[in-house]
């Protein structure tokens, strides 16, 4: 079997499992919707003021939604022993882990991105900024899934890892939030945004290369305990 065929098989298994647990997939989307709804209620219904905050609110809500679902990334594999087999596979575990993370993004980050235009209308984000919002969210949620994968691996052996995962990962995520919201805001104000977008892409790329190594190392600790 070629490497590509193995990786395709792993990706297929992940998507199949996600489909069979599809009730869980709706939860991040609902969370996203609810946070965005609560914001105007808690702060102000004034559309002008909301438009100013829209980029930040959408970004932070989408990231939290994505992060909350990350806790489950390795959990069931850890509990049934599949994780051990994954680490003992003759295919490099970093690639297998990368497949899992990408599958996670396909079933959470991507749907969140696709939902964001609807919610951006509710927050009166300028229509011109919507395509960029989607693009930055796609990159941002991918980066978050990658970095969050490290956190999920570090906390997989703990009974209550969910909240700890958020505490560990959120500070690392400050740069992505900054450049993501800045790009969308700049687009809304008609200012250039290519630089911010390039930085976001660079961070996603860096995370793509570096985080699988840390994730596998963390998984070895969890399994080797």
């Amino acid at each position: 079997m070629t490497m590509t065929a193995i990786l395709a098989r792993v990706l297929r298994r992940e998507l199949q499992l996600a489909y069979r647990r599809r009730a869980d997939l709706v939860n991040p989307l609902l969370f996203f919707l609810i946070v965005v709804t609560l914001f105007p209620i808690g702060v102000t219904p004034d559309l002008d003021k909301l438009a100013e905050m829209a980029a930040g609110v959408l970004w932070v809500a989408a990231l939290l939604a994505n992060l909350l679902s990350l806790d489950l990334l390795f959990r069931s594999d850890f509990e049934d022993g599949s994780l051990e087999q994954l680490l003992l596979a003759s295919t490099p575990p970093t690639l297998l882990v990368l497949c899992k993370v990408i599958a996670h993004w396909l079933v959470t980050g991507l749907p969140l991105t696709l939902l964001s235009p609807v919610l951006s209308v509710m927050l009166a984000l300028p229509a011109g900024a919507v395509p960029l919002l989607m693009l930055t969210l796609a990159l941002g949620t991918l980066t978050l899934s990658l970095i969050g994968g490290v956190g999920a691996a570090l906390t997989v052996g703990l009974r209550k890892g969910g909240l700890l995962l958020t505490v560990l990962i959120m500070p690392m995520f400050v740069p992505v939030i900054i450049f993501g919201t800045a790009a969308v805001q700049a687009a809304g104000d008609g200012l250039p945004w290519a630089g911010q977008l390039a930085l976001l892409a660079a961070m996603a790329l860096g995370a793509l290369v570096l985080t699988p190594l840390a994730t596998v190392a963390a998984l070895r600790i969890a399994v080797g305990d």
Partner: peptide
């Protein structure tokens, strides 16, 4: 928090090292 959450201190050491590196 990660150190304190781990049951075995050896695992806490290694986990925290990875987190610190990231």
């Amino acid at each position: 928090a990660l150190h304190n959450a781990m049951e075995r201190p050896e695992s806490g050491d290694r986990a925290a090292a990875i987190l610190a590196l990231v």
